Simulated scan of single mutants.
Amino acid sequence: MLTGIHVAFIGGDARQLEVIKRCIQLDASVTLVGFDNLESNFTGATKKPLTCDVLKDVDALILPIVGTDDQGYVESIFCSKQLQLLDEHVASLPSHCVVYTGMAKPYLKKLLASTRLPLVELLDRDDVAIYNSIPTVEGALMMAIQHTDITIHGSQSIVLGLGRTGLSMARALHALGARVRVGARRQEHLARIYEMGLTPFHISEVRQQVTNADFIFNTIPQLLLTAEVIAQMPQSAFILDLASKPGGTDFRYAERRGIKALLAPGLPGIVAPKTAGQILAQTLSRLIADQRKAPGGDAT
């Protein structure tokens, strides 16, 4: 239970609604900032403007997946006004407050470093990333089917990276009957790919591997699909870049060659916002509860 804990939300999208519901169910005191246009009302939650006074007794501050932009603006689809998190807002937070977000840009990290407030980046956690790989893979398969005229079964499919998303992507493609090759750098990843019954290759060989590819799914946030690599692909190839912005693809050159290439970060919040929100709600509610138990009040 979160009885006696004040949780404040600043901005967000449909995923945040699941987290808000969970916090209310667990008896937290909930303040919503940037939810002015939200049609549904949450019994037990209070809508307030972004002021220092509102934040002075907050135990847990929850920001959207992308906490702030480079100027401190916080995105909220439920508010027509701009929300900007400033020094004075952070300074008003109590010293035991923990700030939660999906990923933090330099602006937010610098803002919090000056106050030494703990920052938890949820997408860095293995549990959240693995759970999120489920809607990511489902969304990726949906997009691949929508944007091509062939079946995944029997296709020549390449996955770049065997991280948490890459592993789930490769496994799903294999289950659907694709001929799957996976590019990785680490020897243990290449061994795992082989153990899974897939074809491994070192990422440095990507140029040679793409010559007959039907689908290329990139999960590595580094420019790997360069013009030189894309030049070797058949024109019918489809690239789906699942890495965080700006991705790992030369989209300009792909368009010039007539190859369809799409950047699709954040698929969980697009294709399955309720499920993605429930994943966040489960993790956040546990972290906030643990925060109260931990020495010094820090989340672990």
Results as ranks from 00 to 15, higher is better:
R292D: 05
L141M: 08
R116N: 15
R179G: 01
R22A: 15
A289T: 02
D241S: 13
L61I: 00
K245N: 09
A104H: 07
K245D: 08
I145R: 01
V206D: 10
Q232M: 15
I216E: 07
V182F: 06
V271N: 10
V128C: 12
F251K: 00
I152K: 01
F35I: 09
T219P: 13
D290I: 04
V206I: 15
C52F: 00
G11V: 04
G197V: 02
S157F: 14
K21A: 13
L17K: 06
A172D: 01
A213V: 00
R185V: 06
V90R: 00
A294R: 01
V7G: 09
M142N: 08
P49F: 12
L160A: 05
D124K: 14
Q82W: 07
R181E: 11
R181A: 14
M143T: 02
H174W: 03
R257D: 13
T199A: 11
V19D: 07
P200I: 06
R186I: 03
Q208R: 07
M1H: 10
S114T: 03
L223M: 14
P246R: 07
L176V: 00
R192V: 09
S244W: 12
S236A: 14
Q71T: 05
A184N: 04
L122V: 04
Q16A: 12
T101K: 03
E88V: 06
A104G: 11
V137H: 01
I130M: 14
L160F: 09
Q222A: 13
I220R: 01
Q278F: 05
L190T: 00
Y100C: 10
L162I: 06
G11L: 13
A178K: 00
I216F: 08
L160W: 06
L108A: 09
M233Q: 08
I10G: 07
K274R: 08
L111D: 05
R116P: 03
Q146P: 07
Q187C: 05
I152C: 09
P200R: 03
I230R: 06
K293R: 05
G296W: 11
G154R: 02
T136F: 08
E138R: 02
V98E: 03
A191Q: 12
G72W: 11
Q232W: 10
Q84G: 03
G139F: 11
I145K: 00
Q84P: 01
T275M: 06
L225F: 12
Q187E: 14
R164H: 08
R207V: 01
Q282V: 02
A264N: 05
R256H: 12
A178H: 00
F78Y: 15
L61D: 02
G197C: 06
D69V: 12
G139Q: 06
V58K: 01
T199I: 13
N37D: 15
A264W: 08
I193F: 13
K110G: 15
K245G: 00
R207G: 01
I10T: 00
L55A: 04
